[in-house]
């Protein structure tokens, strides 16, 4: 059986804008990945528990309320505390370019902003996955 890429698509925080998260989830599914969708209004702790139990390769976070600077680093931190290693963390939403560097330092490998084609996200995940396999 071939190895499937498993992705958790999660909506931390309080905003209810799930259009982007759902479009990305659908696109990843159509690219042959297994996507676990958490639903809205999730706490960082809940997202981390889902990532752990589902043993996903990738966690995709979406926030449009401006709370990304607090929530994204918190999730990465909790994942590390839980002992998770080698998971790719990416993010999306209304995230000013000035914040990208800070988030990368905190462990969010890549931030996709509005207008990013879903194929770019698919390619990014695939190439990360290939690279990880060969290491």
């Amino acid at each position: 059986m071939d190895r499937k890429i498993r992705v958790l698509v999660a909506k931390p925080g309080l905003d209810g804008h799930d259009r982007g998260a759902k479009v990305v989830a659908s696109a990843l599914r159509d690219a042959g990945m297994e996507v676990i969708y958490t639903g809205l209004h999730q706490t960082p702790e809940g997202i981390v528990e889902a990532a752990v139990q589902e043993d996903v390769d990738v966690v995709g976070l979406s926030v449009l309320s401006g709370a990304h600077m607090t929530l994204f680093p918190r999730i990465v931190e909790l994942l590390r505390e839980a002992g998770v290693e080698g998971m790719l963390i990416i993010g999306g939403g209304i995230i000013p370019a000035d914040d990208h560097e800070f988030l990368r330092e905190k462990g969010v490998e890549k931030v996709f902003t509005p207008g990013a084609p879903t194929s770019e996200i698919v390619d990014y995940i695939r190439s990360w996955f290939e690279k990880r396999k060969t290491v």
Binding site: S26, D30, E34, V35, I36, Y37, G39
Partner: peptide, 8 residues
């Protein structure tokens, strides 16, 4: 691919 939403 698959969309798994039962967790919700």
């Amino acid at each position: 691919g698959a969309l798994l939403g039962d967790r919700i």
